[in-house]
Amino acid sequence: MKKYSQETLVGIFVLIGILCVGYLTVKLGKMELIGGDFYNLVAKFDSVAGLKSDSSVQMAGVEIGRVTKIVLDTNDFVAVVTMKIHKGVPIQEDAIASVKTSGLIGDKYISIQPGGSDEILKPGDVITETESAVDIESLISKYVFGNVK
């Protein structure tokens, strides 16, 4: 036991501790050590029930960004969702953003379907084509009460 000095052991301990803290904050907590890897886009939805800030933004099932802010537009009473998208991913002007659920009761996320336009959205632009969240409860009740064809 006396092979290593107290300082060495404390040093090793602190190193491991910092690695664990780093793993939790940077990798799991996704703390941004270097900002500016992203650009912001805005989308308006009729309903974003279940979506949270930091929810995933995906395209073709691949994560391309995160939701940063959800606010209510008090003029139109729609939800305004701000997303950060990785810089390397271009979003076309006619892309469709929709709120989806992973699995039956899984997390909500935003899925973006690429459009065919040549025009690429610039940071701060608004995605006009949106689909709101599917309300599972009303779906189920429709199913139960036989309104679904």
Binding site: L24, T25, K27, L28, G29, K30, M31, D54, S56, D107
Partner: peptide, 12 residues
């Protein structure tokens, strides 16, 4: 799943 669900607020 872990990466998706854990946010910085949980860690701090």
């Amino acid at each position: 799943r872990i990466y998706d669900s854990v946010v910085l607020k949980d860690v701090t």
